[in-house]
Design a binder for these strands. Structure first.
Lengths: 138, 138
DNA sequence: TAACTTTAGTTGTATATACAAATGTTAGTG
DNA sequence: CACTAACATTTGTATATACAACTAAAGTTA
């Protein structure tokens, strides 16, 4: 088997396993991986709201219906939507206190899972691994 | 940010990009990534048919409706289904000549894409990268 | 051999995702 | 200032996915 083929299969297989474990972990908290990632993006804004385009741009899975994903988060009162007063085409999404609280509850378990996944790596190996991943993307 | 968290996000992000590129590549051939992987699993059987459980076990994305995924491939005449004569609970799925032909057409482009993705790696680095991925899974 | 358990696959239902077309808003041009 | 293009988001539709309940066949045991 050509080496690139094997590596790509290995990559997809591994990422999928990690995704499944993450989905499972998030289930008791009532959110999906995608919703979780959007919440983290919004937390990263440090109070500043983000519009849908910004969110979509930073999402791991780039799909076009960010609207509906955010709708789910609004239903759960984890984020707020506000039409941008300067540019009424835009909407500004910001994480609520309740959203921040939920994230803070998830932080512990998710870091624990992530640490378990990479526990066999030395810091140097982890650095190398990250560089390898970035190299594939470039 | 804790190092495990960063690495896992990096992994998911990269795998997703690779998945998107693969989806795009397969589109003109009229199959999805999942369907493509099932076809490759069946080709790997070298003439021997596989039952649904075996297919599901080897699939990258483990979901429970392998039945419907295989149905799509049957509609396209890329695989055949036959009830196992020894054990009528089982069904045996095998790739058709038309399925093999389609795979052989895709092999070139997909290897080209995969090689492009890992072109910056030396063989040693690729080996290391594969070991890292396996380490995460274990 | 009837009743029970396990195995293998199928089906129903709810939700998620992808893609394209549509809507409403702003900016630019003659 | 009407006209056109670009932008930001929403909506429609088809397909994919996850999960659970269901069916049917085979094996097990009293």
């Amino acid at each position: 088997m050509p080496s690139g083929r094997k590596t790509v299969i290995n990559l997809m297989y591994t990422a999928n396993l990690v995704g499944e474990r993450t989905t499972e972990l998030l289930k008791p908290f009532g959110i999906t991986v995608q919703q979780f990632n959007v919440l983290r993006i919004l937390r990263g804004q440090k109070g500043k709201p983000a519009n849908l385009f910004t969110i979509q741009e930073r999402m791991i899975h780039k799909m076009s219906n960010t609207t509906r994903l955010v709708d789910k988060l609004i239903e759960k009162k984890l984020v707020d939507r506000m039409v941008c007063p300067n540019n009424r085409r835009k909407v500004e999404i910001s994480i609520t206190d309740s959203g921040l609280k939920l994230l803070s509850e998830i932080d512990g378990p998710i870091d624990e899972l992530n640490l378990t996944l990479v526990e066999a790596f030395t810091p140097e190996e982890l650095e190398t691994f990250n560089i390898f991943l970035e190299r594939i993307r470039s």
